[in-house]
Amino acid sequence: MKSPQFEYVRPGSLDQALAILAEHGDEAKVIAGGQSLVPTMNMRLAAPSLLVDLNHVPGLTGIELRGKWLRIGALTRHAEMARSPEVARHAPLLARAAPYIAHAAIRNRGTFGGSLATADPASEWPACCLTLGARIHLASRDGTRVVPAEEFFEGVYQTAIEPHELITHVEVPAATDSMLYGFDELTRRKGDYAIVGLAAQARVGAKGPLKLFRRDDRRLHEVRLGFFGVGETPVLAQRAAAALEGKVLDAEAIQAAQAALADDFEPLSDLYTSSEAKAHMARVLLGRVLNALSGDHSA
């Protein structure tokens, strides 16, 4: 099917884009990569009267290390994330997740901020941002605000973004030597949305100056396990994470985490996969991801 009719505007500055959104409210919809929005419009599930094209707004692109945070412009394409040396070095979790997103032609167009704003419960970036404790920066004509990833995702395709706001950029904590990451997902076919996916992070060993005295300390701390495809939003499996806290990552610890996962969530079924099957897949995936946790982007 074809999209319904709409008016189109191509703002040349952020101020102009925000003024348009302030004036038109929820009659307007911003388009960035359009890889989710255009199908939705073609299927007539969305019919905004005005489309605000952000692709020519300067300042929404770029990936840059600022202090302890990696700043990612909302308009950064998935393909740029996948090939960025800054992302590989300072956010290895994101570098590992990028190739799982759809297909090459989609990755060339779809954007990091757009994926967060769409908030598909089975998509990769929202879960990664939740796991990393990202900060999502929103702007409107009235000013700017920062929403932590934990408070950003509110439901299926629902976020904390108000109709007159848009995402300008996202900050994720830059990786340090003591951080380990893991990412994997189960799909029916390469490039499909995940049935179940997991973005994991943990700190290994002692913190700060203690490190010097405990070089061989391989215990895990601050474990964060962001599952996606299992609920209306990405979810942190807190009981499974707690089971790993202070433990060395061995078979026993992994089994304990897998057992604890049953108390973390009861997955939502979808058209093809029952809740029980998804719970099983989540357990299997947890084992695989924990076994492959590593610090660099080579895994």
Binding site: S3, G34, V38, A105, R109
Partner: peptide, 8 residues
């Protein structure tokens, strides 16, 4: 490469 159906 891009999808020509997903761009106006």
């Amino acid at each position: 490469q891009v999808r020509a159906c997903l761009m106006y």
